[in-house]
Amino acid sequence: MGKNNLKICSDLEDIMPPEYRELVASATYGKENRGWKDIGSAKELIEEHSLCAGCPEAIAFRYVLASLPNPEDTVMVGSTGCTSLVFPHVAVHNIHSLFGNQNAVASGLKRALKLRFPDREKDVVVLAGDGATVDIGLDMTLQAWFRQEKFTTICFDNELYANTGGQESGLTQKGFVMKMAPQGKQFNKVRMPEIARESGCAYVAILTVSKPNLVERVLKNAVLIARTIGPTYIQIYTPCILEIGKQSMEGLQEMRDAEGPNDRFAFREFITDEAKAFLADMDEKKKAAAAAKIGTAAPAGVK
């Protein structure tokens, strides 16, 4: 989709919904270096979702959508869960897959887009919960990584099945007591970042959404590396405040409490040497472009 497709026929402009008009007027499609700094001043690509008041997943969605490097040429693949409540309100092309097969759908989609648009970069980003990624869809998730499919997988890890009443998932921490797991979980949290690294992901990161600039950096790295090198995986802590017994305003503190140096969501990233070289090269080019810009902007005679 080119951003020109968004333009409204002037005869119909007055009957278009105000949210659509705002999207055309001030959304950041096609903007170079879009990111978290656009939040609050530009129209966001998410609108009046139905998540609970204070849900950290909603904050994560805002940052992820603000940070996508190329939203007009991105297709997101969602799966069953709280995230599937949000996708109908997102102004990026998206597909709702069956519970668990999101990485299989994304594999086919990425290959088809490559054939259909050989000259354009089309990004595919999978965004699913921990149940879809690690329990029900673990087979599809891993197989996509084994095959080195070039797309990004994002897991919104709330450490349980939230909208079915609080059952334990593979990513629940050991001993945690839930409404539908009254004895507490008997096993350890699955070490998904390490599994992703060993399964062939070129870039892996685990973080919370308490720092928007970190989310932007990680997401851009993951999407750009997935374009050229191989699969990438991001695991983001988005606690379900209802199911862990918190108030609506306590989500941010919960994330900050879980990201200390020895906590389970301490920021970690694994990058292959090839991906490291790619990022270093990208930085060099950016610096060179910025220097060239300054050089052309400076008045004649000034070095």
Binding site: E22, W36, I39, G40, S41, K43, E44, I46, E47, E48, H49, L51, A53, G54, C55, P56, A58, I59, F61, R62, P212, G251, L252
Partner: peptide
């Protein structure tokens, strides 16, 4: 300061008046 604008879970709800 953009703290409230950034951390509000709702999109386009806390905004900056230019």
């Amino acid at each position: 300061c953009r703290l409230c604008i950034l951390y509000c879970p709702e999109a386009d709800t806390l905004k900056f008046d230019p």
